[in-house]
């Protein structure tokens, strides 16, 4: 695993690798190098299976983190490729030509985070939501509780609590 990272570091701009487990490593790669690195991993290093592709919203840093988790079944190892995007203009190169299911993941990311993948098939079609008009719901600045209370009729008589506060009141009142 270490050897792999060293090989990658020679070719691509790979930074802060974290060995989470013996068979699982996460590292960050520069956005410009990302698709080249992923193609390299798939073609040369045997990481042929894309487990998933998802995003994390780092609202405070103004960044989106894309995570591609690639799996090498011969080596029994995973690498998580982190790519950071600018939160203002989140655009990323598509990898749908490498894996068929990547198009589906990218459709979901476009809908749920608003990250664009130009060229990905059916990227603009709604995937899960229908008639959504607010900001993409998985972004951190979207308040689901507020939206729910404004849109759907809360039943009178049901007092709704914030789960964390309520647990504190009920279970640990003295703290």
């Amino acid at each position: 695993m270490k050897a792999l990272i060293e090989r990658l570091e020679k070719k691509f701009r790979v930074t802060d690798p974290v060995m989470q487990r013996a068979d699982e490593t996460f590292f960050t790669v520069d956005k410009a190098d990302a698709v080249a690195l992923i193609t390299h991993l798939r073609e040369r290093e045997g990481f042929t299976h894309l487990s998933f592709l998802t995003a994390v919203d780092w609202l405070e840093d103004g960044k989106f983190q894309l995570t591609y988790l690639l799996n090498n079944n011969a080596m029994k190892a995973d690498v998580g490729v982190r790519v950071f995007l600018d939160r203002e203009r989140p655009v990323m190169e598509s990898v749908h030509h490498l894996w068929k299911q990547a198009a589906t993941y990218q459709r979901e990311l476009k809908e749920m985070f608003g990250i664009d993948f130009p060229g990905s098939p059916r990227i603009d079609e709604p995937f899960i939501l229908e008639g959504w008009h607010d900001i993409p719901p998985y972004r951190r600045d979207f308040d689901t509780k507020k939206y729910s209370e404004e849109t759907y009729f809360p039943r009178p008589g049901r007092t709704t609590h914030d789960p964390a506060d309520y647990m504190k009141q009920k279970l640990y009142p003295e703290e």
């Binding site: 974290v18 989470q20 487990r21 699982e24 996460f26 994390v56 995570t67 964390a164 647990m167 703290e175």
Partner: peptide
Amino acid sequence: LHWRIPKGET
């Protein structure tokens, strides 16, 4: 209630 988990991903 006060359970915090250090930064990480897995």
